[in-house]
Nucleic acid binder design. Structure first.
Length: 801
RNA sequence: GCAGGAGUGGCGGAAUUGGCAGACGCGCAGGCUUCAGGUGCCUGUGACCGCAAGGCCGUGUGGGUUCAAGUCCCAUCUCCUGCACCA
């Protein structure tokens, strides 16, 4: 009996079946494979087709691993603390807890439409006290190890979000979240000492199977450099200024020195004549915003009136102040070698400071220098005892030489700064610290965790630099766990990145109330084998979670120090003309209608078919028709052939093996768009035959199962099976059976295709050329053959004159 | 400015890494089915010339290597992404 393709009936049936009988179960014997999606924050806007794509990709991969004999850990959860969730609650006038719960319910419904093999028993939510108890616990461990500390300092402040931000959250001087210009604000902040892990975070990138792009971004963010710190005595004073340089080889060329206006000695270096100018400049720099500083790179500065002594040649060099020197990198002071540094050159030109070349370019001194010579290659000149050395060699040796001279030492520096970890907002994990007038900072005792948020009427940000929690007296006032006296709670909360820095560890042991994760389960199921998500977290979430994983490894909680073995960044789905989908642009495409009209299977395949998974793609609704037609045609092909009893022929066997080979190799290469076109191609091919045997239909359905699970399962049943198609082993192609005996190859004359011949793949040269010459006889007639090229299975080229 | 990626029909995109450019799909055109629209099915579809056979051009642009170049080399333009005074 032939049935039409009715996706609604089929998909409903299998949804129910799989709810009752999940296809992915742990029998304790299969090897594990952990395939993880970056968990979403439950936005009030729901999912659009772009979110869908990442989840489809990970599900296809999970099901493929499942059919390769793995038990696949494929969980889903909710990153529900943080600014977006809180802002949404404020906008809708609800309590964050309430609106978050609603949004989770909504998105969960949408995610279920994808029909992924998520194990909902593992579901977690970062705002669940059972979860964030352990987020707080990790903070306490960091504190105990001296990796969490409080510091008063000017931090990045978003006036729109009314909270402090980490460096990683500032993009081009603007808030990563809302785009407002970031300002500076002096605040007492909790910091995490990620810098203590800088070397390991950098070096261990080598171990990871990640996109080079992401590794490079992290490398640059961590920004390790090697050089030396060198002491420059201040002339006429019993003080010295230490500078950091990566080019100690150019020490003899240092003709001036520049301090950041914030440098502790800046004001004191002024003389009576320069005092006013110096003070004015310090004030001017302090008032300059981040954005000004980024956009306007023209050099400004002021001479302090004081001089330093170049410790190499004992020359007096002027000390200047300029905001092109950063206060919080290195020592906040630099030696300036205008001949060999672009910025110093520009500054020297601006303020008419002498320039001394110390590395010969092309063997000589440059006359009328118009730009700095920044390469470390050439012979040293004007450099006392270093004259004649190669700069590249000296660059490496100089740190030890200055050390011997007692004027400095080798030093390595990083661009990465410690992680500003506190936020002045309500909707985050409370930082479990109590401030006691007698005992100082005291941790909330572990048995009192989780420290929950108070339920309050008003939770809007204050903008004063204080968390809204500070206004809740009943919550703030408490007893010191150490001395029992009156004390106050810390009122800042953790940033949105806290929960996501370790959530992947928790999925495999979500209900454990004794430990963050049991050692046994961690060893058995972790770490993550494949992590799939957008590239926007390259230096935020992905750096923070590596840091926390390394820390948890160090304190013995887990036995591995990198969380994500392989990373895949899927491209973004955009609206027309590459415009990012957003509610305000009105170009959001919801998957709901598409699922209703075309079915889950069609949308799954279309999500893959739109383009290469790693690239951005413009969404075009119309294309889904093509995929739907394909699934209908495949369905009809099965209906026509299932009861026909078509016998296996050599040709069918060959096509079958070619199909397996094509789909498997493209899938392994993660070329999912061409997997879909491969299915179409073979469907067209099979449709043109007189009939298709059952084994080929079965193989086809099995290969299709990870992509379009419902139709594959239904076809499997139609073909007479009462077992699950997901219990089938992924087919393996026998390449010898897939090989064509003959192939049509092009025949070129002078490099241009003039005909084709059908010849045996392994035909010898004489046979091939004979056939080729016949095919293009009219093109070579009367001409002399200069050269004959035959590449078996590929091409024949006859060069004539 | 520096680093990385990309530029292929009307559109999304293929091309086993030097071997028949344009697979697959969308769209479009013609035909069949239909009272009609839609669906479905069949055929065609890079540009130009030609009734046709066929010819000729063609992967951002200009050069080069090679029997053969979307693919390799040199130069150049455009777009995207990241970094951007880190001494």
């Amino acid at each position: 009996m032939k049935k039409p393709y009715n996706h609604n009936v089929i998909e409903e049936k299998w949804t129910k079946e799989w709810e009752e009988h999940p296809v992915n179960v742990d029998d304790g014997k299969k090897p594990k494979y952990y395939c993880l999606d970056m968990f979403p924050y439950p936005s009030g806007n729901g999912l659009h087709v772009g979110h869908w794509r990442g989840y489809v990709i990970s599900d296809v991969w999970s099901r493929y691993k499942l059919m390769n004999g793995h038990y696949v850990i494929h969980p889903m959860g909710w990153d529900a603390f943080g600014l977006p969730a809180e802002n949404y609650a404020i906008k809708t006038g609800k309590q964050p807890a309430e609106s978050t719960a609603e949004n989770v319910a909504n998105i969960k419904k949408q995610i279920k439409q994808i029909a992924a093999i998520y194990d909902w028993d593992m579901e977690l939510n970062t705002t669940d006290p059972k979860f964030f108890k352990w987020t707080q616990w990790i903070f306490e461990k960091l504190y105990e190890k001296g990796l969490a500390y409080e510091k008063e300092m000017p931090i990045n402040w978003c006036p729109s979000c009314k909270t402090g931000l980490a460096n990683e959250e500032v993009v081009d001087g603007k808030c990563e979240r809302c785009g407002a210009d970031v300002t500076k604000k002096d605040l007492k902040q909790w910091m995490l000492k990620i810098t203590a892990y800088a070397d390991r975070l950098l070096d261990d990138l080598d171990k990871l199977d990640w996109p080079e792009k992401v590794k490079k971004m992290q490398t640059e963010w961590i920004g390790r450099s090697y050089g030396a710190e060198v002491d420059f005595p201040v002339d006429g004073r019993n003080e010295k200024i230490t500078v950091y340089t990566t080019r100690p080889d150019t020490l003899y060329g240092a003709t001036f020195m520049v301090l950041a206006p914030e440098h502790e000695l800046a004001a004191s270096l002024a003389t009576d004549e320069t005092r006013k100018a110096v003070d004015d400049y310090i004030t001017y720099a302090a008032n300059k915003s981040n954005v000004d500083r980024l956009q306007n790179k023209e050099k400004t500065g002021v001479f302090t009136g004081s001089y330093a002594i170049n410790p190499m040649n004992n020359e007096k060099i002027p000390i200047w102040l300029s905001d092109y020197v950063l206060a919080d990198y290195g020592t906040g002071a630099i030696m300036c070698v205008p001949a060999h540094d672009d910025r110093d050159f520009e500054f020297a030109k601006e303020f008419d400071i002498p320039i001394t070349q110390v590395i010969a370019k092309d063997g000589k001194e440059i006359e009328n220098m118009t730009e700095a010579y920044t390469e470390a290659s050439g012979t040293m000149i004007n450099s006392g005892e270093w004259n004649g050395m190669e700069s590249a060699v000296l660059k490496k040796e100089a740190p030890h030489m200055v050390e011997k001279k007692g004027i400095g030492h080798a030093k390595k520096n990083f661009k990465i700064r410690d992680w500003v970890f506190s936020r002045q907002r309500y909707w985050g994990e409370p930082i479990p610290i109590i401030h006691c007038p007698k005992c100082g900072e005291v941790l909330v005792p572990e048995e009192e965790l989780p420290l929950k948020l108070p339920e309050v009427e008003h939770y809007e940000p204050t903008g004063t630099g204080e968390s809204p929690l500070a206004a809740i007296d009943s919550w703030v006032n408490c007893k010191c766990p150490k001395c029992g006296g009156d004390a106050k709670r810390e009122t800042n909360t953790m940033p949105q990145w806290a929960g996501s820095s370790w959530y992947f560890l928790r999925y495999v042991d979500v209900n454990n109330d004794k430990e963050l994760v049991s050692k046994e389960k961690a060893d058995k199921y972790l770490p993550v084998d494949m992590y799939i998500g957008g590239v926007e977290h390259a230096v935020l979430h992905l750096l923070y979670s590596r840091f926390w994983t390394k820390f948890l490894y160090d304190i013995g909680v887990i036995g591995f120090d990198e969380p994500f073995h392989k990373l895949f960044n899927q491209g973004m789905i955009t609206g027309k003309n590459g415009i990012k989908m957003s509610k305000s642009k009105g170009n959001v495409v919801s998957p709901d209608d598409l699922v209703r009209d075309y079915g889950c299977d069609s949308l799954r395949m279309y999500e893959l078919f739109v383009g290469p998974p790693e690239l951005d793609s413009e969404w075009d609704d119309r294309g889904i028709d093509g995929v739907y037609r394909f699934l209908s045609k495949f369905w009809n092909l099965v209906q026509e052939n299932k009861d026909k009893g078509v016998a296996e022929t050599p040709e069918l066997v060959k096509i079958r093996h070619q199909l397996v080979d094509t789909i498997s190799s493209r899938l392994e290469a993660f070329s999912l768009n061409t997997v879909v076109s491969g299915f179409m191609e073979f469907n067209n091919k099979l449709s043109k035959l007189d009939g298709v045997d059952k084994a080929t239909l079965e193989t086809y359905a099995t290969l299709l199962a990870p992509f379009a699970p419902h139709i594959a399962a239904e076809v499997w049943e139609e073909l007479g099976h009462d077992t699950s198609i997901f219990d089938e082993k992924w087919p393996v192609a026998d390449k010898s059976k897939a090989a064509d005996d003959t192939r049509e190859i092009g025949v070129q004359v002078n490099g241009k295709v003039r005909g084709t011949v059908e010849i045996a793949v392994d035909a010898d040269k004489d046979t091939a050329l004979a056939a080729a010459k016949e095919a293009v006889a009219d093109k070579i007639e009367g001409k002399s053959i200069v050269k004959e090229i035959y590449v078996p299975g590929k091409i024949i080229n006859i060069v004539v004159k």
